[in-house]
Amino acid sequence: MKDVTMQYKNGVTAIYNLNLKIKKGDFVFVIGGTGCGKSTLIKMLYREEKPIRGEIIVGGLNVAKLRNSKVYKLRRKLGIVFQDYRLLPKSTVYENVAFALEVIGTKKEEINKKVLRALELVGLKGKLRNYPDQLSGGEQQRVAIARAIVNEPKLLLCDEPTGNLDPEKSMEIMKVLEDINSTMGTTIMMATHDKDIVNKMKKRVITLKDGRLISDEEKGKYKNEAI
């Protein structure tokens, strides 16, 4: 993770001349009201959207210039977690997690080992054979996290991972994320608008408003003016 400068536009400008640097092993919250550009920021990092200007470097790859057919190179270095989980509904928990390794051609024994470890980390080892719709929202999100970390990415992007969950379940998820951050040394960047979480975790907080960076502080709190 090096230097990040970007501007993005699709009719409306979502991000204005943003400069950002995130160190390895950081846990960063991106906060701000609806439409402030936090999701756009995350999307640009995994090259769902392309900035019209500027440079985004993730793990040595220049994401802004990455060609469509090469996107997979970036995605293999990342883990991504969404508000709506995005699991394959017709595959079991195990298959969903294993899928991330299968597409990169990992050996079967290795897949087995890594999947079990990832599921253990998120506390779902007992539900290997269940299908996503047999799980609660919190459990589904934990499957999604397991899938995101199973190939040991350097960076984990989370776009409102707790958006659909009640506060109790949200804290469980945050516990899992914090574990991953501390035990695996994974850099985590999480977009959220959940005040309690941000206040409790006391991590670095980046606040966006109307596509502009308005504050960036270590051990930050959720600011009301951001909304």
Binding site: Y46, N68, S69, V71, Y72, K73, L74, R75, R76, L78, I80, R86, L87, L88, F99, A100, V103, I104, R147, N151
Partner: peptide, 10 residues
């Protein structure tokens, strides 16, 4: 889109 997300090549 999920396949792409987890890093499957085209």
């Amino acid at each position: 889109s999920i396949m792409r997300l987890v890093g499957a090549g085209n």
